[in-house]
Measured scan of single mutants.
Amino acid sequence: WIARINAAVRAYGLNYSTFINGLKKAGIELDRKILADMAVRDPQAFEQVVNKVKEALQV
């Protein structure tokens, strides 16, 4: 799951650890299995999560 998430978030200019930190700051409580599945099956929803994380990180 970690490898999938890392590959997906790198397309948005983040790395895995920064993304996970941003999830916590944004108050998003999705587990890694769901995030990895979302990255593959629903990229639009995953992009929305990434955008919320970037807002929380102020990137």
Score class of each variant (00 low, 15 high):
residue 40 V to P: 02
residue 53 V to M: 03
residue 47 E to W: 04
residue 28 I to V: 09
residue 43 P to R: 05
residue 25 K to S: 10
residue 31 D to F: 04
residue 35 L to F: 07
residue 24 K to T: 08
residue 26 A to N: 04
residue 44 Q to I: 13
residue 56 A to C: 05
residue 10 R to F: 06
residue 35 L to Q: 02
residue 15 N to S: 13
residue 22 G to D: 01
residue 40 V to I: 10
residue 40 V to D: 15
residue 56 A to N: 07
residue 7 A to C: 03
residue 8 A to C: 03
residue 54 K to S: 07
residue 15 N to L: 06
residue 16 Y to R: 01
residue 21 N to P: 05
residue 5 I to E: 00
residue 12 Y to H: 07
residue 8 A to G: 02
residue 46 F to S: 00
residue 18 T to L: 14
residue 23 L to Y: 06
residue 2 I to T: 02
residue 14 L to C: 02
residue 5 I to G: 00
residue 55 E to N: 11
residue 46 F to P: 00
residue 49 V to S: 01
residue 39 A to C: 02
residue 27 G to Y: 07
residue 56 A to M: 06
residue 21 N to K: 12
residue 7 A to P: 01
residue 59 V to A: 13
residue 12 Y to S: 03
residue 20 I to L: 07
residue 14 L to A: 01
residue 42 D to W: 07
residue 55 E to A: 12
residue 27 G to D: 10
residue 41 R to L: 14
residue 50 V to D: 00
residue 41 R to M: 14
residue 41 R to K: 13
residue 41 R to I: 14
residue 38 M to A: 02
residue 20 I to T: 10
residue 17 S to Q: 13
residue 45 A to K: 13
residue 14 L to H: 01
residue 6 N to S: 14
residue 30 L to G: 11
residue 56 A to G: 08
residue 20 I to R: 06
residue 14 L to K: 00
residue 42 D to H: 08
residue 7 A to W: 07
residue 56 A to E: 09
residue 50 V to W: 01
residue 19 F to L: 04
residue 3 A to L: 05
residue 45 A to W: 14
residue 15 N to A: 07
residue 55 E to F: 07
residue 5 I to F: 06
residue 49 V to H: 05
residue 9 V to G: 01
residue 29 E to H: 13
residue 49 V to E: 02
residue 30 L to C: 06
residue 44 Q to A: 10
residue 57 L to K: 02
residue 16 Y to S: 05
residue 27 G to W: 04
residue 31 D to I: 03
residue 34 I to D: 13
residue 10 R to M: 13
residue 31 D to P: 06
residue 13 G to I: 01
residue 57 L to C: 03
residue 48 Q to A: 09
residue 22 G to L: 03
residue 14 L to E: 01
residue 31 D to G: 05
residue 50 V to I: 10
residue 46 F to A: 00
residue 9 V to W: 01
residue 42 D to P: 01
residue 6 N to P: 01
residue 28 I to K: 03
residue 34 I to E: 14
residue 11 A to P: 15
residue 22 G to I: 02
residue 46 F to M: 03
residue 4 R to S: 14
residue 1 W to I: 15
residue 53 V to F: 01
residue 38 M to V: 06
residue 39 A to N: 03
residue 56 A to D: 04
residue 33 K to H: 13
residue 54 K to D: 02
residue 55 E to T: 08
residue 17 S to L: 13
residue 44 Q to G: 09
residue 49 V to C: 07
residue 23 L to F: 05
residue 51 N to Q: 11
residue 54 K to Y: 09
residue 25 K to F: 09
residue 50 V to P: 00
residue 52 K to H: 09
residue 34 I to F: 12
residue 36 A to T: 04
residue 6 N to L: 04
residue 48 Q to T: 07
residue 12 Y to K: 04
residue 52 K to C: 05
residue 49 V to K: 02
residue 13 G to H: 05
residue 19 F to K: 00
residue 16 Y to N: 01
residue 6 N to I: 05
residue 33 K to F: 11
residue 43 P to M: 06
residue 13 G to K: 05
residue 29 E to M: 14
residue 47 E to D: 07
residue 17 S to E: 15
residue 38 M to C: 05
residue 19 F to P: 00
residue 10 R to V: 14
residue 10 R to L: 10
residue 54 K to A: 07
residue 19 F to A: 01
residue 50 V to E: 01
residue 50 V to T: 04
residue 39 A to G: 03
residue 8 A to Y: 07
residue 54 K to R: 10
residue 13 G to V: 01
residue 37 D to P: 03
residue 47 E to L: 10
residue 31 D to N: 08
residue 17 S to C: 09
residue 15 N to Q: 08
residue 36 A to D: 04
residue 46 F to K: 00
residue 5 I to S: 00
residue 48 Q to M: 06
residue 51 N to C: 03
residue 2 I to F: 08
residue 23 L to G: 02
residue 16 Y to W: 04
residue 48 Q to C: 05
residue 11 A to M: 12
residue 11 A to E: 10
residue 49 V to A: 03
residue 12 Y to M: 05
residue 12 Y to G: 01
residue 30 L to I: 15
residue 47 E to N: 08
residue 58 Q to M: 08
residue 58 Q to W: 07
residue 25 K to Q: 13
residue 12 Y to V: 04
residue 16 Y to P: 04
residue 27 G to E: 06
residue 45 A to F: 08
residue 21 N to V: 12
residue 43 P to C: 03
residue 22 G to K: 01
residue 23 L to V: 11
residue 24 K to A: 10
residue 43 P to A: 05
residue 43 P to Y: 05
residue 50 V to H: 01
residue 21 N to M: 10
residue 13 G to C: 04
residue 11 A to G: 09
residue 38 M to T: 06
residue 19 F to Q: 00
residue 30 L to M: 13
residue 37 D to C: 03
residue 42 D to I: 04
residue 25 K to G: 10
residue 9 V to E: 01
residue 25 K to R: 10
residue 29 E to G: 13
residue 36 A to R: 03
residue 44 Q to E: 09
residue 13 G to M: 03
residue 10 R to H: 13
residue 22 G to S: 04
residue 52 K to L: 13
residue 11 A to C: 03
residue 45 A to R: 13
residue 29 E to K: 12
residue 41 R to Y: 15
residue 40 V to L: 11
residue 55 E to I: 13
residue 6 N to C: 07
residue 50 V to R: 01
residue 47 E to Y: 09
residue 57 L to G: 05
residue 59 V to E: 12
residue 43 P to F: 05
residue 33 K to L: 12
residue 22 G to F: 03
residue 45 A to S: 10
residue 46 F to Q: 00
residue 14 L to R: 00
residue 28 I to L: 07
residue 57 L to H: 05
residue 40 V to N: 09
residue 19 F to T: 01
residue 1 W to D: 15
residue 45 A to L: 11
residue 46 F to D: 00
residue 15 N to T: 13
residue 7 A to V: 13
residue 7 A to L: 08
residue 20 I to W: 08
residue 39 A to P: 10
residue 31 D to S: 08
residue 37 D to E: 12
residue 23 L to M: 12
residue 58 Q to S: 15
residue 48 Q to K: 14
residue 20 I to S: 09
residue 41 R to C: 05
residue 22 G to W: 03
residue 29 E to Y: 10
residue 3 A to F: 03
residue 32 R to A: 14
residue 56 A to T: 10
residue 51 N to R: 07
residue 11 A to H: 10
residue 47 E to H: 06
residue 21 N to R: 11
residue 16 Y to Q: 03
residue 22 G to H: 03
residue 8 A to K: 05
residue 39 A to W: 08
residue 19 F to Y: 02
residue 35 L to R: 01
residue 34 I to Y: 15
residue 57 L to E: 05
residue 9 V to S: 02
residue 3 A to G: 10
residue 38 M to D: 01
residue 54 K to F: 10
residue 51 N to S: 11
residue 44 Q to L: 12
residue 32 R to Y: 08
residue 40 V to K: 09
residue 29 E to Q: 07
residue 8 A to E: 06
residue 33 K to G: 12
residue 14 L to P: 00
residue 7 A to H: 11
residue 39 A to S: 11
residue 35 L to M: 06
residue 56 A to K: 08
residue 31 D to A: 06
residue 45 A to Y: 09
residue 32 R to Q: 15
residue 46 F to E: 00
residue 46 F to R: 00
residue 11 A to S: 08
residue 38 M to Q: 07
